[in-house]
């Protein structure tokens, strides 16, 4: 099935999202630091969330690259024949 690669990637992303958005990895951000005046913990949550969404969007909208396995062929010098 041509969906296999994409399904596997999404499965991996699901696992990664589950880990990143749960204890203990999420706890790493729980500190008093702030970035540009924004507290780190809420900021980290939104950034991780946004990155997940962006990744899904990227994989979902770049259709042709994923549906057919890409076999990159070495580029041969092209001989054009005009006759």
């Amino acid at each position: 099935m041509s969906h296999t690669l994409r399904s596997q990637r999404l499965g991996a992303l699901f696992a990664a999202g589950w880990l990143l958005l749960n204890f203990p990895l999420l706890g790493l951000w729980d500190s008093d630091l702030s970035v540009l005046g924004l507290p780190l913990f809420p900021l980290a949550l939104f950034v991780i969330w946004g990155a997940m969404i962006a990744t899904v969007a990227w994989w979902m909208e770049s259709r042709p690259g994923l549906e057919t396995p890409v076999a990159s062929e070495p580029e041969l010098p092209q001989v054009q024949v005009r006759d």
Partner: peptide
């Protein structure tokens, strides 16, 4: 509770990651 309102929206996001399948 601070950020504790958020898991209710993170769950559907993860569900939609698997939405394709």
């Amino acid at each position: 509770g601070g950020m504790w309102f958020l898991p209710i929206y993170l769950g559907p996001t993860l569900a939609m990651v698997l939405g394709w399948t």
